[in-house]
Design a protein around this nucleic acid. Structure first.
Ligand SMILES: [Mn+2]
Ligand SMILES: [Mn+2]
Ligand SMILES: [Zn+2]
Ligand SMILES: [Zn+2]
Lengths: 144, 144
DNA sequence: ACTTTAAACAGGAATCATTCTTAATTATGA
DNA sequence: TCATAATTAAGAATGATTCCTGTTTAAAGT
């Protein structure tokens, strides 16, 4: 079994998949599937949006990208795969990483207090980025 | 200005709105708009799903219900309006309250470490409820 | 390199939650 | 009561995501 996208993973290396992974690893942002589609399309002009969706799902199932649900309609994807938290600006929708250590102990705390076997948790912060805090008067901000 | 749903709030008391609020306050679960629609329809047979959506939004904008985004496709609504965290079973989708004190200090911590003005955060736990842990072998569970 | 076969693909249709539009109904209040 | 504004029901529209189908591509063995 050759040509693995990532050694030791049962994931085939295909044209679209490779470009998607390369491109999402180049950026520090948290793009939507459509934003990735526009980026990937520059290298693979015939790629389809469905292919981008499908491969982002496959990559996230194999832990090669993260799939994030924030407070807007679309899913966001993240090339950084170590567990970390995010903040989203409620005005412009920008999503960024949080330099906060993971709170692993809260899973245990919750498991002890409930009848659940706790597998994981997510934390999302919401607030105003610098730009949006400043232009508070102008009202130029987009909605999330 | 009479007929307010809640004293001191600028929110009028209408037939559908009143029933929706009464019914969501009766239950401890975290229904979707459609589940609320089915419940409300028993008292108001001519109510429409759009009215349920609109009023749940209005109620949540006024802080009379919470609107929750968990890891399934629909929004969930919560008649309990004090801040609290939730856990969702990854197998059956059931969503329940967590008896964990709010971590208010993390907002400050994040604000100090980032360029954001932090307004709020959400924490969601995911795991297996007792029923779904037990029937692990049977494979009868629904997907979330 | 050639063949076979399963997986991946493009393009477009379908799905599904949610929002929007509009005309009718209901509440407010002078 | 009459005028006006808000709410509603019904169904259309929207938008993100998934699914379907016929075609192309990659992988594994010759
Ligand atoms: Mn990230
Ligand atoms: Mn709750
Ligand atoms: Zn911003
Ligand atoms: Zn369960």
């Amino acid at each position: 079994m050759k040509n693995l996208l990532y050694t030791g993973k049962k994931i085939k290396k295909t044209r679209a998949r490779t470009v998607i992974l390369e491109e999402i690893n180049k950026i520090k942002s948290h793009p939507t599937a459509y934003e990735m589609f526009k980026i990937v399309k520059q290298r693979l002009p015939r790629v389809s949006l469905g292919t981008v969706y499908r491969n982002l799902d496959i990559l996230s199932e194999h832990g090669l990208v993260l799939k994030l649900k924030m407070n807007d309609a679309q899913m966001h994807y993240d090339g950084r795969t170590d567990e970390h938290y995010h903040i989203q600006c409620v005005k412009c929708g920008k999503t960024e990483d949080i330099p906060l250590e993971m709170l692993n102990n809260i899973d245990t705390a919750v498991q002890d207090k409930t009848a659940y076997r706790v597998l994981y948790h997510t934390i999302s912060f919401y607030g105003l980025c610098t730009e949006c805090t400043e232009e508070d008067v102008t009202g130029k901000g987009n909605k999330v």
